[in-house]
Design a protein around this nucleic acid. Sequence first.
DNA 1: ATTAAAACTGTGTGCGAACACAGTAATTGT
DNA 2: ACAATTACTGTGTTCGCACACAGTTTTAAT
Lengths: 359, 359
Amino acid sequence: MERIRIKDIAKLAGVSPGTVDRVIHNRGNVSEGAKQKVLGVMEKMGYEPNLLASTLALNRAIRLAVFLPDPELDIYWRQPLQGVEKAIQQITHYGVVPEFYYFDSNSEQDFLRKGQAVIQSNPNGVLLAPLIFKQGKVFIDRCIANKIPIININTEINTKGVLAYIGQDSFQSGVLAARLISFNLIGTSHVLVLNMDNKLQDAKHLQEKEKGFRSYFKLNHSDQIHIYKLDIEDFNNQEYIIEKIKSLPISPEELSGIFVTNSRIYKLMDCAGEIFKPTITTVGFDLVQPNIDYLNKGKISFLINQNSVQQGYLGIMGLTRHLLQKRKLEYLQNLPLDIVVKENINYYLKRAHELEILI
Amino acid sequence: MERIRIKDIAKLAGVSPGTVDRVIHNRGNVSEGAKQKVLGVMEKMGYEPNLLASTLALNRAIRLAVFLPDPELDIYWRQPLQGVEKAIQQITHYGVVPEFYYFDSNSEQDFLRKGQAVIQSNPNGVLLAPLIFKQGKVFIDRCIANKIPIININTEINTKGVLAYIGQDSFQSGVLAARLISFNLIGTSHVLVLNMDNKLQDAKHLQEKEKGFRSYFKLNHSDQIHIYKLDIEDFNNQEYIIEKIKSLPISPEELSGIFVTNSRIYKLMDCAGEIFKPTITTVGFDLVQPNIDYLNKGKISFLINQNSVQQGYLGIMGLTRHLLQKRKLEYLQNLPLDIVVKENINYYLKRAHELEILI
DNA sequence: ATTAAAACTGTGTGCGAACACAGTAATTGT
DNA sequence: ACAATTACTGTGTTCGCACACAGTTTTAAT
């Protein structure tokens, strides 16, 4: 069962390869009769273009703008970038070239300015983490107006025209965190939710996590669990963090669990690791280095892996696939919520290999 | 920074493209001087062959033999096959064609006969799950003698010449299982290890899991935990299973945890789901359908995901990469030990999408 | 010194698809 | 009826690489 080529279709339809090509690419200048004959044969024979020959002949570059927060300002963003690098490594064959643009997620100004630069470079596609909702939406709309395909990671802004969102189900990750903490709860217990971010009113996904967390306890141990919540915007101020915790209506030793809704649980451990009871269950997100260290030391009980490396990897792959082939992508691509403990963390850290395998 | 081609190297080295080609493929008939000049230029310019043009020009088929246990006899093997299909789907462009051979893992005869057929077809590579140790070794050696590259999944047989083993760290998965059960242990407790397989003396990886399980408790709650162990070869005989469990020195209600060392925990639940106390922690392996159902019903507490779909996927990708490019593979590729609970299982089931993205 | 063989090197064609361009047929206008 | 458009169709070159084959130089043999 040999693969069918344009040449074969041409022969079967009684036309020249050039005509078949014109039909395939809707380039016009084909009589209705010829067109129908060609389409008929293509359908019957199940023609699949040879991607290799096609990209070779096209001989073009695919420029992808990678528009993410500056990894120098928040180490979290190193991970998606690592995934981007891996993906690029595997598809340079197809002429894919990345162009990196980093923004300061605390400065709308900066975001807009860099966004301007992205659009001006007129890339073939954009990978975006739209952390800043309002300006993010403006940028996305401008991309769509310029027919630049766009994939979002990490944070969802569901606007028509966005190819895909790759990230996690924030609500469900909160549910999972609650379940993990509940292993250790007996009778009346106190648990704390900690949001640590600059602009909490914008951080919709953190709010979702909190909602998920609360909903689990509403369904399961509702009467015995007391949930406290602290919002800390100035998370680099250690004295402030401690002060906030001590201002809770209960003492820190009474807490049975803490849920930090993003990757900054290490900021808490840096200053307040010793003020809780030893058997407390602590849950945070992401395999960034300081978190890994605290997990191995037993100070963090669970980390939920947001698969941020994969987000970058899949984002690039998705864009490439869209540009190279015609198939539609699935809009929502929720990545698994990996439960990481001391006993299985090594395999997640090594997972880079898994990605490296692909062609 | 344009990509450098054979033609460019030829010009820079002052020879013809044909000579460069001969150097690249070690085809001989090149003077030492020319060879050194070409190698020098290649090194300096960092030549990377264009994989697309190369495979297009070669115009050959890569036949990969997929030699696994019959999925009709054990549903577990559907998963690796699913991964194989996904992989093939993505790389038919490169001329990769699978040839499937299934064996009955209870019949050495059958394995040898099918193995004979595999070798006779003289494939370009083999994906193998060497469940039967002795005959597996014989088959592997024969492949190596015929210079057929081979990748093992699921079970490791570490022989020189095998390209890679893709699977899990059995010992560590036992450690993890123990940790999961330990969440629920207070004071003196009884836990059970259950091995359910046909030929337990051959099933080295199940023994490893048990060892890992025991080692955790040796290090952590050694004096308070009593570990019982049952080997059940006739796992389709429900009365036999119940009888065995009732013959333990303690009653089933006293068990705080059960660890089934492979995917057959559903066989236990099918017949003995009701004889344990409601708060028991049960740990098994793999997201096969009956296990998924019991997890959602709350009868199974944790499943450790062996990533068997990935094993098939990565096996095919690894073979292809070896045959298409020259880079060496890493021999040991341990997949993550995913902790799966009711609250995060959906994302693992949907992970097929993750794979589908790639080119 | 001359031929034969061996060692080396360059050119040309094909892989399948994309597109430019040349070429032919049908249609319009005068 | 004949030129001038327009509509359609086929051929040829290119992408980068692999390999066959022809062509050239060097070495060995007589």
